[in-house]
Amino acid sequence: MLNTPSEELLLAGIIGAARGLRGEVSVLVHTDRPEEVFQPGSVLTSSSDAVPELEVSRVREHNGRLLLEFVGVDSREQAEVLRGTELLVEGEDEDDAWYARDLEGLVVTDIDGNELGVVSGLVPSPAHDLLLVRSEGTEVMVPFVEAIVPQVLPEEGRVVVDAPSGLFPDRTVVGEEDTE
Rank of each mutant, 00 (worst) to 15 (best):
M1P: 10
N3T: 15
T4Y: 08
E7D: 13
E8Q: 15
L11A: 10
A12R: 04
G13W: 03
G13H: 03
G13D: 05
A18V: 07
L21T: 12
V27R: 00
V29Q: 06
T31L: 05
R33I: 11
S42V: 02
L44I: 08
S46Q: 07
S47M: 02
S47Y: 02
P52D: 07
P52V: 04
P52A: 07
L54C: 10
R58S: 11
R58M: 10
V59S: 03
E61L: 09
H62M: 14
G64T: 05
L67P: 03
L67W: 05
L68H: 06
L68M: 07
E69C: 11
E69K: 12
F70G: 06
F70E: 05
G72R: 11
S75P: 12
R76T: 09
R76G: 04
E77Y: 08
Q78S: 10
A79V: 04
E80Y: 01
V81L: 07
V81A: 08
L82D: 00
R83L: 10
G84E: 12
G84W: 13
T85F: 02
L87S: 04
V89G: 02
V89Q: 04
G91A: 14
E94N: 09
W98N: 03
W98G: 00
Y99N: 05
L103G: 02
E104P: 00
G105Q: 00
D110F: 07
D110C: 06
D112P: 03
N114F: 13
E115G: 11
G117W: 01
V119F: 01
V119G: 01
V119K: 01
S120A: 03
G121Q: 06
G121W: 05
S125F: 09
S125Q: 14
A127Q: 09
A127L: 11
H128N: 13
D129C: 08
D129R: 13
L130P: 06
R134A: 13
T138A: 14
E139T: 13
E139W: 00
V142M: 01
P143S: 02
F144L: 09
E146H: 11
E146G: 06
E146C: 00
V149W: 03
E156Q: 11
V160S: 00
V161T: 07
S165K: 14
G166V: 00
F168N: 03
T172E: 14
T172V: 14
E177H: 08
E177Y: 06
E177K: 05
D178Y: 11
T179E: 14
T179D: 11
